[in-house]
Amino acid sequence: MRFGVIIFPGTWSDKDCHHVLDKALKQKVEYIWHKDTDLSGFDCVILPGGFSYGDYLRPGAIGRFSPVMTAVQEFAAAGKLVFGICNGFQILCESGLLPGALIQNNHLQYRCQWVHLRTENTSLPFSSRATKGQVLYIPISHYEGSYYADQATLEELEVNNRVVFRYCTPSGEITEAANPNGSLNNIAGIVNKAGNVLGMMPHPERACEEIVGGLDGNVIFESIIDEVTTREMGCVKPL
């Protein structure tokens, strides 16, 4: 399988994602420049963290107009895997691939810290390696990471099991104190209707090596690898 990591002007988790996929997980991975428009040959495209276009106007609001985003729309429509992390999540929301928005943290400060995430849906290409309710320990790093959506959208997300990760306590309880940014329903990550586009604010690529603090991020990347490998073997699971 082949991963692609998109570089927007201002992206900075590109090298981290590349390092983890290449060195820790031994996968084929290539960078994709934001002006490129051809995504053929890739199985999963990652929109990494950073400050695309300086987060000017709104995070992701300019990045979504990059030429590559048209290709990402088509790529997603074809059922391929799209994974937005942090600023990537914000771009996916701005581009309409995911519903809702990421607004300023409720305490109005940037926050970089380790958080606990409860895995809510484990039947997705991004979470099949997790057990239901499994608590993952993964860092966040953002100023605008508070998930917001209107009531109807929220209900739709909940009813259809599209909330993948929620901020929780170490033992998996969903509490206000465990919510680092004021996200509605403690939402840290969601998928689109078809389940092939994931956006999450935490940075799993920062939790893939013991030397930098943890291994839980691998659960997500290894789930993706499982999914694509299964597809390559011809046993395409219905989304």
Binding site: W12, D16, Q109, Y110, C112, P139, V212, G213
Partner: peptide, 27 residues
């Protein structure tokens, strides 16, 4: 202070802020 700073990006931070010295691995 340091939770307002990204102290992990580039994934080298082995000993984060709050110790006598920070330690960064050299990839």
């Amino acid at each position: 202070i340091f939770r307002q700073y990204d102290h992990q990006v580039q994934i080298n931070t082995t000993v984060p802020p709050g110790s006598d010295a920070a330690v960064l691995r050299i990839k």
